[in-house]
Computed example of a mutant assay.
Amino acid sequence: MIPFNTPFLTGKEAHYMYQAVYTGKLSGNGVFTKKCQAFFEERYGFKKTLMTTSCTDALEMAAILSGVQPGDEVIVPSYTFVSSALAFVRQGARIVFADSCIDNPNIDVDKIEGLITDKTKVIVPVHYAGVACEMDKIMAIAEKYNLLVVEDAAQAIDSFYKGRPLGSIGHMAAFSFHETKNIIAGEGGLLVINDDRFIRRAEIVWEKGTNRSEFFRGEVNKYGWVDVGSSFLPSEIISAFLYAQLENLDMIQERRKAIWSQYHEGLKFLEDNGLVHLPNIPEYATNNAHMFYLVCRSIKERTSLIEYLKANDILAVFHYLSLHLSVYYKANYSTIPNLSACDRFADCLVRLPMYYGLKEEDVQFINSLVVDFYKNK
């Protein structure tokens, strides 16, 4: 069986974890945490970064920092992981779901302004598959209505919008290092703060509502409880594992992009003949090869394709279900929006295996099976 994902190890992870263990400093904000944060700030120009135990935690921090109160509204694409919405629901926000683009699972920017009310506080663009949303338009809308933008960049490490790193454009951003991502730590995340207004409070929220970070820098002579927060810091073991991956980011990205290109070249003629749709990379965006997917013509066809691949020892999977049709949303909201583009991706999108160790012959075999499936279609 060719799996959907196999975590890649550089060989240094256990060595750095060993180092972390024997420094005697295993809790958060130690040497490796600082090294990881410095890497992101120096490579991508993020103003301030804080490692977290997950992308969900980073989003929850962003929700706290955004000042969302019960009754406030937050605009989120429906085609995303539940954390994009849940982080704000926990603060009492009412989620307003937006549709996807017709040719791309990202949020349809042209629909955002029509969803804004006097209760809207935040827009959460999700860079699906690491491909940028149209950020200039989103930031212009946010400025016009005095809204905050939190980039859900869970899948978007080392991807760019008009030359600008994703995660550097919104007021805040969140990244994931889950084992299915390009760069992994098993679990793990990163909060990016690009707006000076939120930097000091972010450290306090990060440190369980205390000004502990300021104390350890010698900026105050004692620390105590000064705000809300939680234990969002990861242990040094998580950061040590991640740092080994970050040292090899360029090598990992080069291989993933080669795999992505092999898929695309092998399946492009299916799209040319109207049998499937392949990922659309707008001219303003780059491709970080987080995933390779194709969009079938119906849910029945997608189910048959997944079953056909599985029968031939290939594990392909679908992705998100529409959040506006979820059990939770239906139970808590009286009006269910009609988001047809989102529903199409929920019904028809299938992801093919994508990981560093996937061999060229594996990709060739997968491509040949997909082609065989569509021969008589």
Rank of each mutant, 00 (worst) to 15 (best):
F269E: 07
D272C: 06
G274T: 05
L275S: 01
L275E: 00
H277C: 11
H277W: 10
L278G: 01
P279W: 01
I281T: 02
I281D: 01
I281M: 07
E283W: 11
N287E: 01
A289Q: 01
M291R: 15
M291E: 05
F292V: 04
L294W: 08
R297V: 08
I299V: 13
E301F: 05
R302I: 01
S304F: 06
L305R: 12
E307R: 15
Y308W: 04
L309N: 03
A311G: 05
A311N: 08
N312D: 00
N312L: 09
I314S: 09
L315A: 14
L315K: 15
V317T: 11
V317D: 04
F318K: 15
F318V: 13
F318L: 15
F318P: 14
L321R: 15
S322F: 12
S322Q: 11
L323C: 04
L323Y: 05
H324W: 08
H324I: 12
L325Y: 10
L325P: 03
L325T: 13
L325Q: 10
L325R: 14
S326Y: 07
Y328S: 10
Y328L: 13
Y329Q: 03
K330Q: 04
A331N: 07
A331C: 07
A331G: 05
A331L: 09
Y333H: 08
S334Q: 13
N338T: 09
N338C: 12
L339K: 11
S340E: 09
D343V: 05
D343Y: 06
A346F: 03
L349T: 05
